[in-house]
Design a protein around this nucleic acid. Structure first.
Lengths: 189, 189
DNA sequence: TCCATATGAGACACTAATGTCTCATCAGGG
DNA sequence: CCCTGATGAGACATTAGTGTCTCATATGGA
């Protein structure tokens, strides 16, 4: 699948490079994105009509990765806690991109929000609701809030790792343990 | 010190208006900020040399509000949990501004970071460390991560309220309960 | 070999935002 | 009453980023 020797640019590769760059510097220009992808600005423009289109494509990529992670995590199997652990582990590689899109989405204010996010929200909310109905999770925190909190913790974790204040290997543990167990010490398991 | 009746514009009031606007729309132009503050762009420019200076001033404001909240929360008194509750309650009014500055800081990448943030980080970290040493908080989550997680949850909470997906009255409860107790249901208090 | 095609480089116009300037106005103090 | 000083309005140049265009080049297939 790797046509490295072809002249044709791989849009997928361009998107990955753009995601990696914009994750670090959310205000990067088209010029910088093109350089990061190893192509010229003209070619970048041929594949993505403009910055807007690029962000939309990244949004689609992020949604696709989220859905893939949701699928891979098999949210319906085992306890809800285990499912949350699998989900965080599966979504970790996309956390940086998610954080970028998360902040970018706040700019879409009035504009139409990609329906894909709603589906993802719903799937994650359903997981938390399943945990509540099964008596596993507390019921005074709404599934919507738990979902939003997960996003926030993912962003914080990604930032922590990116800024070097935390080790990548701790990413999953930090997030899952805080989200599920909280900061308070438990008397027993 | 208060020349309210003078023609002179109150820089404090301008900053508040700018904070309120940029909290909602982080890409607002100088023109929009001026309108929001009820002054002309020229006057805005007379008080703040440029957008950069304005953001710096907002940063100082945010730091000041954080420190005021830290003081008001009396982090050294009572249990660490109680102190965290007071802190979240005290910092709530500034959460929006904090979220804005938080995202803005990521753009300062290489540039010098205002030392004020480090002091604030240290004071909050010290609170979590106190909780750990007192056997109140678990020790497998570092104070630095708990601090970062608090920031993330504050941002998520502010976003939740701002987007209308959550009620302002739940702000404190949502954040504190998740941060301290986590999502898992407890067998007893 | 020759051709179709995609790319890279760069020029160009357009836009939005910024920063600076001037000038008229208006309030308050002397 | 007049003068000082701050403001509002708006013109203006500058900059950065974008989007579009042309042309030369190089690759891979027919």
């Amino acid at each position: 699948m790797d046509y490295a020797c072809l002249m044709a640019v791989d849009p997928e590769h361009v998107l990955r490079a753009a995601a990696a760059l914009l994750t670090r510097k959310s205000t990067a220009t088209m010029d910088e994105v093109a350089k990061a992808a190893g192509i010229s600005r003209a070619t970048l423009h041929r594949h993505f009509a403009g910055r807007d289109a690029l962000v939309r494509a990244l949004e689609s990529l992020g949604i696709a990765e989220c859905e893939a992670a949701l699928d891979a995590a098999r949210l319906d199997e085992g306890t809800a806690s285990e499912a949350v652990r699998r989900l965080v582990a599966a979504i970790e590689p996309a956390a940086g991109l998610l954080a970028f899109l998360y902040s970018e989405n706040q700019l879409f204010e009035g504009e139409e929000l990609n329906a894909g996010w709603t589906l993802i929200d719903d799937r994650i909310s359903a997981l938390f609701r399943r945990g509540q109905l099964g008596g596993e999770f507390r019921i005074d925190l709404t599934p919507a809030w738990l979902t939003e909190a997960l996003y926030g913790l993912l962003a914080s974790g990604a930032w922590m790792v990116h800024s070097g204040k935390g080790a990548p290997k701790d990413f999953q543990h930090m997030i899952v343990e805080l989200l599920l167990g909280g900061a308070l010490r438990r008397e027993e398991s």
